[in-house]
Amino acid sequence: MIAAVQSRPIVPFLLVLLPAAFLLFFFVIPTAFLLSASFIESDGVIMTGVWTTQNYADLLSRPLYRQAILRTFLIGIAVGVIVIVLSYPLAYFLVRTTSPWRGFLIALSLSPLLASVIVRTYGWWVILNREGAVNTALLSIGIIDQPLTLLPSSMAITIGLSHALLPYGVLTIMASLNGLNPNIERAAMSLGAGRIRTFLTVTLPLTWPGIVGGFLLAFAIAISAYATPAILGGPGTQVMATLIRNFMVQALDWALGSAMGAILLVSSIALLLITSALGGRRVG
């Protein structure tokens, strides 16, 4: 009620005071602290208090780390592309179908969101390992006589992440297709454009923001994913998330850990800014 708003400006402050204090203390300050820690010299987990850019220099000078960063971004791009390529036809179908099963099919396509990413990745390990479904099948029909080494590999990580992130692409693209006035497509067809021409010249360009948004969302989640690269990758296919885990928990090198975390954080924020600059749907 507008009248109440005018007379009691104190109310919103009472409402947000506690939650805001909680978030400030446990989210904002720790994140800011991590960013500054990445510029401080440390010995293990003990910070010495000297400002430096050495942590970043260390990360970028070692080929292992450099490759891991590069690999992370390449996997992120590949995952983004695969997610869009697979989710666009699915989303298009789900928005346009008149099937009575439509609701069920939508729920089914989004159901992986209910499973932990470990459950989603486990199946790929079963499929791709040396004794897995792919090798068993290929061996039994005699195409190969030695099992292929499909794991650990960047390809396996890419497939696993694409599978895990597909629902996000479907959600984003369905949203942008739903926002499309169907009469615009009908208009194109009445002017003589065939189904495919209509799709290429009208539908696709108009849903471009959804495509960009879906790509960036999948990319952003992929570059910070831990479980899938840990399960489907190995020592030779480290990514930023697995390295951060090593730095923070095993090597206890918190300086490198925070610097790597900072790179990840800044990349995600940069992506967010790109998304809104491109006029895509707001991520999140």
């Binding site: 978030l23 820690a37 990840l264 999140g284």
Partner: peptide
């Protein structure tokens, strides 16, 4: 800030909390 954790990598939020609570 409230919606931020949706966008920022959870992993980074996690290590930030680990580091902050320890320090």
């Amino acid at each position: 800030i409230t919606l931020g954790p949706l966008i920022l990598p959870t992993l980074v939020t996690g290590i930030a909390l680990l580091q902050f609570l320890t320090v």
